[in-house]
Each structure stands twice: as C-alpha cells, then as structure tokens.
Design a binder for these strands. Structure first.
Length: 429
RNA sequence: GCCGUUGUAGCUUAGCUGGUAGAGCACUCGGCUGUUAACCGAGCGGUCGUCGGUUCGAAUCCGACCAGCGGCGCCA
C-alpha cells in the first residue's frame, strides 16, 4: 500500500504500486480512460486500457464516476502529460463503491457549498484549508509548550457571564439553566496560582445575532494567562507566538497556500516586533487620515479596516479608555482613565484577532470596578477569592483561532476557514 | 435587532417593456489510443422559493411569508 505523494517520485518508475483513494476526475478518449485519483496526500493520473486489462475490466473502470472509491495496482511511469508528472497503468483493481452522480461539480454557489460542506471538505481547496488549520492549532500549542506553559481544560458549561454585554447560550442543567462558556479567562486565572503559565484551546459560544463575515456563534478560542507579567511582556509573548505560527504554516503548508492563492511573500514579512500604538495616538492618526473618530469612540469594523490600510503587519492598539473595556482590566497607574490592555489588529482588512491585557489584582480595586459596572459580587465569589489569597500581578489574552486561520489563509469569510461553521442561520451540516 | 440583496433542472445560469421556459455542467447511451474542468453527437431532467392578488394570459407586475447572503451594532 502506498500514498500518492510517496509514489510521485522517480524512484518508483517501473515499479508496481498499490494505491487507494477517490476519483477526482475521469475522462475517456477512445479506448483509453484517464482517472485522476485523489487521496489525502495528493493527485495522480491512472491509465486504464485494454493493453493491461481485459475489455470487461476496462469497461467497468471507464464507467466509474467522480468520488467513486477504489484500490488499484499498477506500474508507475513518468509522463509529462499527466497532471502531477507520473502515471500508473492499472493492471488490477478493486472497486469499493461506484457512486451515483456526485452532487458537487464545477460552478458552485456559496449556499450550496455550505449545505454540502460535508462533501465539499473533500475538495482540493478545503483539504488545503484543513491542513493549514491543523498546522495552526499544533503550532499554537507547541509555542506555549516550548515556553514552559501548561495546557489546561476549563469547563464549557458555566454559571456566570465573564463579560456583561455578550449574549449567552442557555442550556438546561438538571432543572436549572446554565450557559455555554464565551471565554475561559476567569477559569484560566484560577490556574496560574498552581501552574503560573497556562493556555487552552477550547470552544466558545456567543449568541450575538451577528451577521458578518468575521463572526461565528461557536468558535475556537485560544487563551493564555501568565503570572507575574504586565501588558508589555504579554504583547512580547503574543507577537512571537503569531510569528511562530505563521512561520510554521509557511514551512509545512507552502503547497496548500498556493492552492488557496495566498501570497506567501506577504506572510514571510509577518515578523515580530509589531508596532504598538496607544489608543489616544491612534485617534490623532485617524483624524489626520480623515476618519471621523474622536477620543472615546470605539473602533468599528470600518474604522479598523481603514486604519489597517496603513500597515502590512499586525498592530497592537494599547491604552484604551476605561469606558470602552470591561471591569477586570487594570487601569494605568500613570493615567487611571486608561487601561493596560491591547487589541491585536490583523492587516489586509481582517481586523481584531486578539484582545488582552493586564488584570486588576487588588481586591478593593476590583470590587470598586465591579460596583461601577453594576455587577453582583456574589456571582463572582470565586473570581474575587483569587484576589484574597496570595494575589499577584498577571496578564492574559484571548485569540480567535478561526479568525487567525481566516487571515493567514486570506479567505473571503470566516466560514471558509472552519469546516462546520455555526452562525445565526446555520447549524447544518 | 436594524438596513440591503438574492431565490428558474442535482449544480451554475439566460430569460429586458407580461404571450407555450433555453443553455452549460453532472448523469445515461454512442464516437474518438494521450486526455488535462478533454472534445463531438444524442438522451434524461423544471409545481420558475411558498401563498395570495392584478390580468384573457404571470418566471416577469403587486403584497405577505420563508430561506440564503451581505452591511451595521457587539465582539475573538
């Protein structure tokens, strides 16, 4: 048994190989039939003819359809006319299944492909997407393992909101109603008191009725929390992490990026350090660029896009006004109206992919900020406990893995970066 | 939630001011000993999203509803 990628090699010329996979294309030309076979590693042309098969066998192979599954044994030869430079002349085979007409052919509509995502997964394009995603998830975890972090597993079913504004998914829980997690941050903060440096990649859920190309209701949320460090040190870790993930994708997925039409040279330029811009300075710059922004405005999607036109690497925006961020962010001691936080904006119009910063670690200060936000301390008793027993300075961040994958692959919508997107209007397949 | 837009064969679509619904792909059959999303010929395939209205006559005009997509707000 051989893989297709393995056999696309001069060492196999003249040798017999056994391949298995699915029919990617099939066409007949007179008494010859060309089958393009697909497996997880690539494509290869197979030749069926009466030279090496009986007329009945040749006829059976010629009658196969796209995505039929089979195993073939044949002889490899080099042939520049074949799609990947080599061809296998079949002399025996086994058909596992001959399909009826495969629903997906050429000229595909967006809605149809989403309805048939379970089949579209097999396409060359989506196979490339899945391979790049696999690298991104591995590289994220590797980066943190290599830097002394522990991976932890926070709960998914939770009883409190982490952030006031976002809408929660309610699920029944033995006669009670609980929520699906929309951020693991508070739980991650609990882990640093035993492990100091922790990360997780877990699903998060947002019941916001967002209808945009960058929102999912279920997404993969990568989060880290680090003891003893502040906002600037946190950003240093993040920029190296992004650089590492992008470099790993370039190293392992060059072919996939080509299939997706991604400009690899652009990605090669994604190297730390990334520029830091204070919110107040960004507002001044935006005004010079003619954007209708003033101090105190939040960055909308349009503003992010217009700002990022001026950069070809991700940019950290820091020191947001207190009013724009939630209660747990640490105010800047030098200017308490601003907080020690950062958003990382991706270039090329992709916008925010990371939100993070330093957390308030003083109990009184946290209680005061919660009171300002009209939050009931009882709901957060365990979060407040962390500030009662050996509290320490610490920072963390949350990264939308699907958004990162979406940007790295430069896909049209975030739905094209995740196999089974969940949105306000889509729960199938 | 608000605003916009689209819906014709399994898929992609043409059909303009109302007059018997047309093509390509897929599939089936036939032709071609080197095809590259092959090509050539034939066949199969449609309650024009749904319901209602206007009209002698509606895919086409009007209304409501349903579904998808896009934008905003919110966020990762």
């Amino acid at each position: 048994m051989h893989s297709i990628a393995e056999v696309l090699n001069k060492d196999y010329i003249g040798k017999d190989v056994t391949l298995h996979g699915w029919i990617y294309r099939i066409r007949t030309s007179g008494k010859l039939t060309f089958i393009i076979l697909r497996d997880s590693t690539g494509l290869i042309q197979l030749l069926s003819s009466t030279k090496s098969l009986t007329p009945e066998q040749h006829r059976e192979l010629s009658g196969l359809t796209v995505e039929s599954s089979l195993e073939v044994t044949g002889t490899v030869r080099e042939d520049t006319r074949a799609i990947t430079g080599f061809e296998v002349e079949i002399h025996s085979y086994r058909i596992f299944q001959r399909n009826e007409s495969f629903p997906i052919s050429r000229d595909l509509g967006e809605e149809f492909l989403l309805d048939n995502r379970h089949l579209w997964i097999r396409s060359r394009e989506f196979t490339a997407v899945l391979k790049v995603r696999s690298t991104i998830f591995k590289a994220f975890a590797d980066f943190y393992y290599n830097n002394g972090f522990y991976q932890v597993q926070p709960p998914i079913m939770v009883s409190t909101a982490t952030e006031g504004g976002s809408t929660l998914f309610k699920v029944p829980f033995f006669g009670e109603e609980v929520s699906l997690s929309q951020s693991s941050q508070f739980y991650l903060e609990t882990f640093i008191f035993s492990l100091e440096k922790v990360f997780t990649i877990s699903p998060s859920f947002r019941a916001e009725k967002s209808r945009t190309r960058r929102h999912l209701t279920e997404y993969w949320h990568a989060e880290a929390e680090v003891a003893w460090i502040g906002n600037e040190e946190m950003m240093k870790i993040e920029e190296r992490m992004i650089e590492y993930i992008v470099s790993e994708v370039i190293r392992h997925n060059e072919e996939d990026l080509k299939i997706l039409g991604r400009d690899i040279e652009f990605l090669r330029n994604i190297r730390a350090p990334f520029q830091r811009i204070r919110y107040a300075d960004l507002m001044k710059m935006a005004q010079e660029w003619g954007l209708p922004l003033k101090y105190g405005d939040d960055l909308g999607a349009d503003e992010e896009r217009e700002i990022m036109v001026h950069f070809d690497k991700p940019v950290f925006v820091t020191h947001f006004p207190k009013s724009l961020k939630t209660f747990y962010h640490m105010p800047d001691p030098e200017n308490p109206d601003e907080i020690l936080c950062h958003d990382l904006l991706a270039p090329e119009g992709y916008g925010e992919i990371i939100g993070g910063g330093e957390r308030i670690w003083d109990l009184k200060q946290l209680e005061q900020r919660m009171a300002e936000s009209n939050l009931d301390p009882k709901d957060y008793y365990w979060y407040l406990d962390l500030r009662k027993y050996g509290s320490i300075p610490h920072s963390g961040f949350g990264l939308g893995m699907d958004r990162l994958a979406w940007w790295i692959m430069k896909q049209e919508t975030i739905r094209d970066a995740i196999p089974y997107p969940r949105t306000i209007r889509r729960i199938k397949p």
